[in-house]
Amino acid sequence: MTDILLSLLILAGALFTFVGSLGLARLRDFYTRLHGPTKATTLGVGCLLVASAVYFSLEGGSLSLHEVLVTLFLFITAPVSAHLLAKAALHLKVKSLAPPPDRPAPGPARD
């Protein structure tokens, strides 16, 4: 029973991580590409860590909560790196699909 549950969690985690990386290849400008790997992975890695915590708690006989720390550090660092990448891209005026903020588009944001 738990085996099935754990397998599902790991599959879901792998799937989300894969889709996140797929975003890197499929999306078409720097800013939208930022969303794929930083986001879909939040849930992907989350699922994998829950699976790991449950497995090692049952296997080792004592509660394993290392995974909580991994989640915590991930949640602290991921947004900071995404923010800095976006900020650097704005500074370098990287090509963007969305109208960049300094030159507001005349009409609604639709091309």
Partner: peptide, 23 residues
């Protein structure tokens, strides 16, 4: 996070061409 992950996954799979990104 859960809801948004599904949305983003859907957007990536269904068609990056239809995205309307914005600042």
């Amino acid at each position: 996070i859960v809801r948004g992950s599904f949305q983003v996954a859907g957007l990536i799979l269904l068609g990056p061409a239809r995205l309307r990104p914005a600042f």
